[in-house]
Amino acid sequence: MSLYKRGNTWWVRFTAPNGQQVRRSAKTTNRRQAQEFLDCLKSDYWRVAQMGDKPKRKWQDAVERWLEEKKDVKATYINDVRILRWLHDYLFDKNLDEIVRDDVDQIIKAKLAEGVKNATVNRLLEVIRAILKKAQTDWEWIDKATHVPMLPEPKRRVRWLTHEEADRLLEELPDHLAEMVRFTLATGLREANVTQLQWSQVDMNRSCAWIHPDQSKSRKAIPVPLNADALALLKRQEHRQQEKPSDFVFMFRGKPIKKANTRAWRDALVRADIDDFRWHDLRHTWASWHIQQGTPLYVLQELGGWAGPEMVQRYAHLSASHLKVYADQLAQSKAISTNLAQSTISGDLETVECAKKSA
């Protein structure tokens, strides 16, 4: 029987032209509507088999394939899972080619109603956009994905510390956190890469360390050159662990440090009179200091393990040394030099005339 009931809901069951057994809920208690659903479904499968149409794929099919492909390669995988769970009620049973702008607008409105910022909504929209793009270009499940807009986000300035502010903060921090801050300012590593750093990732003889691909946000290995400050710090850590060696570089009371952004960190910021500053801003500080010392952007990108130049570009405005040669060329212009000379002469003559009148 093609139509049957489960409780009060009608279900459909049939064999598609390719031999596939199809069983699906019609999501209705009305038999006539269930029959219409069955007829449309059979027609879709027939067109796929006989006319070469693409089979109808649902959002949930795309989600399952996306999660399978990204499981071991995407650093934000856990966040994606959380987002997709939230989207379940809005897109779960929709065909991919039936997802339209109205659906996206409804999702935006619902998420904003939770009181979140545009940036949070955009992270959700980026996941929708990425899955639909995959379905169109890579999997060839749909001919064209609907447009997914991004909400405007305020452009925040890069928060970084001056050397004087950094010294002030270090004086207020407990020793174990101060050492981690010094290491971050010397290497630019992210919080998790510092707290999880193991001695097996350090070679002090070659003055280098490394972050494994599965520990990196970009999922690429990051070489970490160790300057004199970083090496001196590591030697101190090594000396402290002589009696009780550990696999981890940074320890507190005999245990690995799981999180650096603690109450001790926040209290030290207050005592140091430093506002609006997060642990991750230490990485911004490291990058800003590099740029101010003349490190080229492409070198900074490699040092920081960024996948593309866009993130590094945020620091470009902190140094204009690479532009000075072009500014100097304008200063050598004859027209400008002549005008400046004439202005100087005119100014000198006016000064002389004023002096004569005064006399």
Results as ranks from 00 to 15, higher is better:
R263N: 12
W160K: 06
K54L: 14
Y45H: 14
R240M: 05
G188T: 01
D281F: 08
L226H: 11
H239C: 11
H317V: 01
V312Q: 10
V73D: 05
G19A: 12
E191A: 15
K217L: 04
K324M: 07
D138F: 00
R23L: 08
H176C: 04
F14L: 00
L323I: 04
A135P: 08
K255V: 13
T195A: 08
V299L: 09
A260N: 02
K109W: 10
A335W: 00
L169R: 06
D328V: 01
Y315H: 01
W10L: 08
I257L: 09
D167L: 15
L197W: 12
K220F: 00
K244S: 02
D281N: 06
R157P: 14
W11K: 04
D167Y: 09
E302M: 13
W210N: 13
F92A: 13
T344R: 14
E353K: 11
W279D: 04
R190K: 13
N8H: 11
K324G: 02
V325T: 15
I345L: 11
W306S: 07
L189N: 00
R266P: 09
S288W: 03
D273R: 08
R182I: 10
D138M: 01
L41H: 02
T120G: 09
D276S: 11
S246H: 08
G188A: 06
L91G: 01
T29K: 14
S246P: 02
Q198H: 09
R182Q: 15
F250Q: 00
S25Q: 06
R47Y: 04
P256I: 04
V202F: 00
A34K: 06
K357Y: 08
D93I: 06
Q215F: 08
V100F: 14
L185T: 15
L41R: 12
H212S: 13
T187N: 02
I345T: 15
L125C: 03
R206F: 12
N118Y: 10
L189W: 01
V352T: 10
T29D: 00
N18Y: 07
W306M: 07
Q21E: 14
D61A: 08
V22A: 01
R13V: 05
E238W: 13
L233P: 14
A232N: 09
M51E: 14
P152W: 05
Q20H: 11
D53K: 10
D89F: 09
W306F: 11
D348Y: 09
L233H: 08
L96Q: 02
D138L: 06
N205G: 15
A145R: 12
L323G: 04
E302D: 10
L41T: 13
R253Y: 02
I211R: 04
T262V: 00
D275R: 01
L233A: 11
P225R: 01
Q35F: 15
P154L: 09
Q293E: 13
L151F: 10
I99Q: 05
C354Q: 12
T120I: 03
I274S: 07
N95M: 04
R123V: 08
L151V: 06
L173A: 05
N18M: 03
R123M: 10
